[in-house]
């Protein structure tokens, strides 16, 4: 890499002292004897509160998250869905918009099918309930899904969705980013290829600043290359 800007936040490891003020503790931290320490390996972000943004780790679903899941099994009344987390999620037959019989379940969504879900409930023992997003089940029948670490999702989306709009405007593709790090891309094959490449690049350089500018440049170059080859 030629030009790489500096990390704009400090890298911290578990046990690093972050603040003397217990009231500033936010996600990724813990308080001991009135002081705030880092709970994880990540980037410390200190504003009115101090939090630590993880650099790695497993996705834990929260109520309201929208995720891309893959059906792993069908039981009598539930679809078992893999949501790229240590825990399996369930979507009950009654969550489907219209009344269906158990025997019809596989036709609607079979094992291996991918779909967009909303997390409706997570209980303390991590039993996860899903529902179709916005009342309508979206089974992904075209395009492709790439996986990135869930910790990189905010960078793929960008501030107020800037990165995702950039990708959509430069490439003729539809992109959906699940909170669990699964990204659905749908469009022409060449555009999908390029989108995958760009997303992988964002994942690699997620912790650096000036990323949007570099991605814009990369997109311009690649777009040019694609046209010349034709």
């Amino acid at each position: 890499m030629k030009k790489q800007e500096k990390v704009d936040k400090t890298i911290v490891v578990p046990g690093d002292l972050l603040s003397e003020d217990a009231a500033k503790a936010a996600e990724g931290t813990y308080v001991e004897n009135g002081k705030v320490y880092s709970l994880i390996y990540g980037l410390a972000d200190e504003r009115e509160k101090v939090r630590v943004i993880p650099l790695s780790g497993k996705y834990l679903p929260a109520t309201g998250d929208v995720v891309v899941g893959m059906v792993s099994d069908i039981s009598f009344s539930n679809w078992k869905v893999d949501i790229n987390s240590p825990y399996e999620a369930l979507m009950h037959i009654s969550e489907y918009p219209r009344r269906i019989e158990s025997s019809e379940m596989a036709k609607i969504m079979g094992v291996g099918d991918l779909a967009i879900f909303k997390v409706v409930d997570v209980d303390p023992s991590m039993k996860i309930e899903l529902a179709p997003r916005e009342g309508q089940l979206r089974v992904l029948r075209s395009g492709r899904v790439v996986e990135v670490s869930y910790t990189k999702v905010p960078r793929v989306i960008g501030r107020a969705g800037s990165m995702i709009s950039l990708l959509k405007s430069k490439l003729d593709v539809n992109i959906f980013v699940g909170k669990n790090g699964r990204i659905w891309i749908n469009g022409k094959v060449e555009d999908e290829d390029l989108a995958v490449k760009v997303i992988k690049r964002i994942e690699q350089e997620a912790h650096t600043s000036g990323l949007t500018d570099r991605i814009t440049k990369l997109l311009e170059e690649e777009k040019h290359g694609v046209h010349e080859k034709r």
Binding site: P14, Y37, L55, S56, G57, T151
Partner: peptide, 11 residues
């Protein structure tokens, strides 16, 4: 463990 993102009170 830290690299895996496991929450820990310290190393």
């Amino acid at each position: 463990l830290a690299d895996a993102g496991v929450p820990m009170r310290g190393l």
